[in-house]
Structure formats: C-alpha cells, structure tokens
Design a protein around this nucleic acid. Structure first.
Lengths: 410, 410
DNA sequence: CGCGCTTTTTTCTCAAAACTAACGAACGCT
DNA sequence: AGCGTTCGTTAGTTTTGAGAAAAAAGCGCG
C-alpha cells in the first residue's frame, strides 16, 4: 500500500497506453470504496455499508473480513438494536493504529511536524524555526521523524510523509522549485526526506494541500461537493482546485496559480513578469501596503497581517478600509473564477478570514453582481474549516488521500 | 447504449452514494477501452490491441468476438505479415454503418445539420437560416432529421443528436438558457428534439463542444494530452476546458465562461454585471469596434470579422493594428489561464485565427513573458484543427464521446 | 422459558470476467 | 521440407462479486 504513495510522483507520463482493468483493479477499487465509507461514517455496521456501496452483503463481509485480518479496521463493541428487535449490528471503525501518518507544513518562518493516526487525530505536534539551509533543515526533520517513530511504536506501519510547501513544487520530480517567501531553490525534498526516513513522501503546494484538506474533511459538511475552489490568502495569493472530487494538478504540476491572472492590464508590474496580477491587489502584502499608505510619513513599521486584523477588530478605520478594499478585489477575482470554473463551493483561507464578518458580505455582494451564471448566486462562499494551518491538515491529507481514494480506471 | 446518452442530462446529483463496481462495470470499461483503441488506430489486429490495452489475447478475442457479432466492428481483409513471417494478422476496424450520428450546430445566423457515420465521416450536411422562433425552428429541424433517417436507412442504428449552442446551456435540465447573439430564452432543446425525433439528445455550449472536438480528433496529434484549454473567439469570448481527458462542465454546468473574468477592474461595464471582462477586449466585437474607432466619422458601416481579416491579409494598417491589439489581450488572458489551469495545450478558434501568422507570435510572446511556471514556456499554442465550424465537429463528438469514452468508476 | 419475529452476518454455491497455457494455421526463410 | 515466428483460438483455471439460505442474536409475548 505504501507503494502507491510513491507512485504519485514517480509515475511516468501515461504513454497513450490506455491500460485496461482486470480483477485486481476491481478488487482494489471496491476495497478503497469500503475503506472510505468506513472512514466517513464510522462506526458503521456491515449492513449499512452494503446499502451505501451497492455491494452485496456477502461481498462486504468478505472484504471487511480481510480488512479485519490485516488490521485496517476493528469491530467496535456492540451496536444498538432497532426498536423492532433483530440482531444488533456490529459497528466497524478504522483501526487508528493501522497507519501513522506524518504531516510537514513548511512555512517561511515556522515549520510544523505532526503525526496523526489513521483516523486523522493528531498524536504529536512539534514546531521548528524554518532553516535557511534546506538540506540541513530537512535532515534535522528526518531525525525528528525517526525519533517520533521510535516513540510511537504502537503503530503497525507508517504510511508516509505529506509535505506542504509555500511555493511552486513539481511533484513529478519531487522538487520544491521556488518561492517568494522562502529562499529555497530547486530542493529535491522528496529524495532527501525519503533517504532520511525510508518512508514514501508526497509534496505539494500549500494552497493545493489546503484545498485537499477542505474536500477531505469537509466531506460531512459539503456532502456531495465534487468541485471546490480554495483561495489561500497569505503573503501571496494561491489557489487549489478540486475537480470531480480529486485535486487538480495540471499538465505540468503547476495548476492553481490563479493569483497570477491579471485583473488590471494597466496595473503595476508583478514579479511574475505580467502586469496587474490579482496577487498584487488581494494578498496580505497588498493589504498591508494599502494600510501603510494611509499613514505615510508616520514612520511606523508595517504591521503583520495578524496585527492588522486585530486593529480591524478594535475598530481602526484605516485598517478596516484596507481590509475592505482587499475583500472587494477578492470578490472581483472570485467572481471571475466562478464564471470560469463553476465550483459548488469557494473556500477562503488565511489570516484575513478572521475578519469574516467584515470580509464575507463584501465578497458575496461582488459575486452576486454577476448576472452570468443564473446559479452562480447559489455558490457557497465559506471560510476554511480549519482555524489554524489548513495546510498542515492538507499535508496529512496528501497521504490519507493516497490510502483511501479510489484509483481512476481507464 | 443509447441510454447512456440520455443519462447525461437526467442524472441526479450523486447523493454521496459511492457506488461500487461489479463485473458489469469491469466489462463495460474494457469494452469501451477496446472500442476506443480500435477507433484510434484502425485498422488494427487483435494482437496489437492486446499489447496496447494490456489485456490478454484471449480476452481481446472474446470481446472483439462480441463486437463482431453486434456489428460494431468488422474484419478488414488480410493484413501484412511481418518480414520474418508468421500468421498474417486480421485487422479490425469500426463498422461505419453501426451508428449514424447527428450533429446540429446552431449559430446566430446559420444552423448546420450534419449526419456522420460511426467512423466520423460526414455523409450529409444541410444548412438553414436560424429561425427566431425556437420551437418552430426545432420542429422543422426534427422533420429534417426524420427525412435524413429515411434517406440513410443503411445505418443499423442512430445513436443520437449532439447540439452545439451559442450561449449558456444547462445540460442538466437540457435547456438553452440565454445568449447575447441569439434571441432565444429558456428553450427546452433536449425535450423538444427528443420528442420530435425519439433519439437521445445531448446539448452543450459551442466553446465546450469545440474543446471536445479538439481533444477527440486531435488525439493522433496531441498524443497524450490530457488537459486542454480551448479559447473560442467569436462575437463573444468563451472557453472550454478538458481536464484529465474529459470535458469539464462544472458543478452547475456553467464552467468555461472565462470570457468573463475581469482583466481591468476599472474598465467599462460589461453586460454580465462585472467590469472590464476579458470578453470586452478580445472578442470579435471588440476588435471590430477598435477598427471602427480609427475611422470615426467616415460613416462607413462596421465590417464583419471575416472582412476585417481579409483587410489584414490585404495589408490594411488600421485593421492590422486592431487585430494586433486583440492578440495582445488574448495573450494576456491566456497567460493568466495557463498559470491557473496549467494545460498542456491551448487551442484557439474563431475567425481571427485565419490571421494566424500575425496573431500567434504576439500571443506566444505574451505567454513567454510570464516567469512563473518554469514549464509554461513549453505550453503549445495552436489554432483549431478544423478550418470550418469546430463546433459542428464538437456537436458530433458529444455523441461519439458518449459511445466511446470510458465511464468513471467510484 | 419457548416460540415467532426481525435484523445482521456468515456460509455455500453460482456466474461472470479475465488469465494461463497450449495448440493449430499461415507465412517467410533457409 | 523443416524451422522459427506470429496470430488467433480453445479449453481450463483463477479471481471476484452475486444470490440464497442458514446461522446468530436479540426482542416481545404468551
């Protein structure tokens, strides 16, 4: 199983060879489906699994039997019998100890390493100052992972390490390419961490990780959402797109850089080479700059975004106006993306969402202005389900997704 | 089989019910894969199909045997034996007469009705002036279809009618919603045509149809392209997105309206309710207006886009500059979309591509300006593979795609 | 407490699909 | 003619899910 995680980045371009499906694929698909149903609705008895999946009760018994044998799931005591009587169900749930999953959320300033069990509960969490020398830093992280493995030796197996990085990644080659906020360049993150820990490693960009986390853990909330747009507002602006239930990475692994679509062709030059990118208007950097501009000459240092939001909560008019303006730009960009991508839901993440009461109405108003898609008005606009570090949840989801998602056939 | 076409629009939202796969699904998948391999590489012997698909020779024999029996394919004489000797292969090809497929390309002025065989060759083509009363017009088309069916009675079966429409469609309800160029509103196209002809009908927007046509017929050329962006430049600007090999329609069937992302937030108001939409700068309408502005007061009537392109070919400086400017805006928008969507290829369609020698270098230059995605430079920018009416090819592809594409599992 | 009733789960048999291996046919080369 | 090669088929095996029926486990009632 840990193999499949490795395949994620080393998979060769599908040489137009349409591989057909055999029994093994059928088996794998159904196994994954059951596992994901159990993961979603645990504790859940076999009979219900059969109903949900459409599989025959007998088949469910066979498959769950194997899962019990390989310790992926456990029987969970006795279930409640129905009022009419009948045999009480035997609820099944994931075996938390089946897999340990490492999540590494690397940010410009601080890096968090977490260990979660198979049931998505954190069992350890460490934080470090992000080092400027990537190799030394990742070696250190590798040692910490080894320590954690030794400490939590009750896990049957460790599934892998999911890594969220604040910038462009190529998860084909497993390399971190570059970022504006973190001075790393062309770091073979996958190779380094795999060598240091001998575990499969999957990396991705933080916005895409966050999108994955939303679709993955919001499952209960956004029951049948298959298409989601995540807009990550931090120093820069980056997006993650979930299409038909799975993360869209693009043809060259660079999908999601919607922060660099132009919203003003006559605007200032962006470091990306274009003019008037959305990023320049709606990122934290832009918000802070806008606030600073109102008190030019005061000589005061620019606040962090966290501070700025606190100022808004305190009622500071200049800060409020700066955030308001950002919200307008966010709204404009999001409306355009709704027109193009037509997601069922848009999730916004970042410090700015702490001022949700101020931000949300402005964004919603902007989207409602569009007359285009008659149903666009119905698109849900939400803030991230995670108070802190959605990207850490996303890093963990990279591995979890690999264990639980149904492989594509065809 | 014709059922599946009908399902396309009547399929209920997937109520979080993860349907598992049985043998029937496996069977369907492999059957479709073989059919699509044969369609791609015909004439092709069984042995090669086995190699390509990964299926066992025996399995291929069984499946192709059934296909022969139901006349989907035919044996094609004798194949060439290899230089070394050996039994000569028996090439297989599609049976052209297995399915007749209707394609209806409705444009503001002219509507084309075509009949193609299963091997994607047109066998009939009629054109009509598009009527202003949709019901009367579609009834008339229905009669024409019935006539064509009677005339071409050598087909075993008619698979359905694919319809391309110049505006917003909801292919959930099967309705044409609205358009700026065609004064139809809320027309239940699917219902009307199905009632008139008793054939399954699939409708879609013309840009999305064209995108489908490109991925479908460009298969030989863009061998392993899985993600494609089609930009349709006509009166308005609309896009079609192919993701992971299949047309992306979005959560509410409105995906692709990238013509209405803003590229100048301070720009003029667009009829969509937003400001400074891309459409306002790069559509034919914009190009023509720009040209007209240069000869203000001359009192001459605005030319059609076709005329304008002819003027460019004739060396008219004002026309050339107008088109050049449009190309720049196209480039700006496309670059942004490449950043966000990361397709392997961008295909541009519309009258303006007839001035490809002028347009292409400008767009390419613009995309190369972006430093963002290191591989963005490698994105291929092409004009549509079809000289005339890509959307007609796309309308046909709607049905063909339904017959040949591999269903998703999970 | 036994009996009918209900619901869950397992067991056993069957059917479907793909895989394995072996073989015959057709052909070129020597 | 003999040999090696390739294509396609046939017969039998394996894998996997489906279906029916039996076993298990409670509940309620007389």
């Amino acid at each position: 199983m840990s193999r499949s995680a490795r395949q994620q980045y080393s998979r060769k371009p599908n040489l137009a060879a349409v591989r057909a499906a055999g029994h093994d694929m059928l088996r794998l698909v159904n196994r994954r489906i059951l596992l994901s149903i159990i993961s979603d609705r645990q504790p859940v008895p076999r009979a219900e699994i059969a109903k949900i999946s459409g599989l025959n009760k007998a088949t469910v018994s066979t498959i769950t039997g194997e899962m019990l044998k390989d310790c992926s799931i456990v029987e969970d005591g006795f279930g409640q019998t129905t009022p009419v009587g009948g045999k009480p169900p035997t609820p099944l749930r994931l075996n938390e100890l089946r897999y340990g999953i490492f999540g590494l959320d690397i940010r410009a300033d601080e890096t968090v390493l977490a260990l979660s069990n198979f049931n998505n509960r954190l069992v350890a969490r460490l934080s470090f100052e992000t080092g400027s020398d990537p190799r030394a830093f990742l070696t250190k992280i590798g040692r910490e992972i080894t320590k954690l493995r030794a400490k939590h030796d009750n896990f049957i197996e460790f599934a892998g390490i999911g890594v969220s990085l604040p910038g462009l990644v190529d998860n084909h080659s497993g390399k971190f390419l570059f970022s504006v906020v973190l001075p790393w360049r062309d770091v073979p993150v996958v190779q380094l961490l795999e060598k240091a820990t001998d575990l499969p490693v999957i990396i991705d960009n933080s916005a895409r990780c966050s999108a994955l986390a939303e679709i993955w853990h919001g499952k209960a909330q956004y029951a049948h959402v298959r298409n989601l747009l995540y807009v990550g507002v931090s120093t820069g602006l980056a997006c993650g797109v979930v299409i038909d239930g799975s993360l869209y990475r693009g043809g060259n692994n660079t999908a999601g850089q919607f922060g660099h679509i132009p919203i003003d062709v006559n605007g200032p030059e962006c470091r990306c080479g274009q003019r008037g990118c959305w990023d320049l208007y709606a990122s934290d950097k832009a918000t802070i700059a806008r606030y600073q501009a109102t008190r030019e000459g005061s000589g005061k240092r620019a606040p962090t975004m966290r501070k700025l939001v606190e100022l808004v909560e305190g009622g500071d008019p200049a800060a409020t106006e700066a955030v308001r303006e950002t919200a307008r730009y966010l709204g404009v960009g999001i409306t355009g993306l709704i027109n193009g991508l037509d997601p069922e839901i848009v999730v916004i993440g970042g410090e700015i969402t702490k001022a949700w009461g101020l931000v949300e109405p402005i964004i919603s108003e902007e989207t409602k202005r569009s007359l285009l898609a008659p149903r666009a008005h119905g698109v849900a606009i939400r803030r991230s389900a995670f108070e802190v570090r959605p990207s850490l949840k996303g890093a963990l989801a990279l591995i979890l997704n690999d264990l639980l998602s149904v492989p594509h056939v065809g």
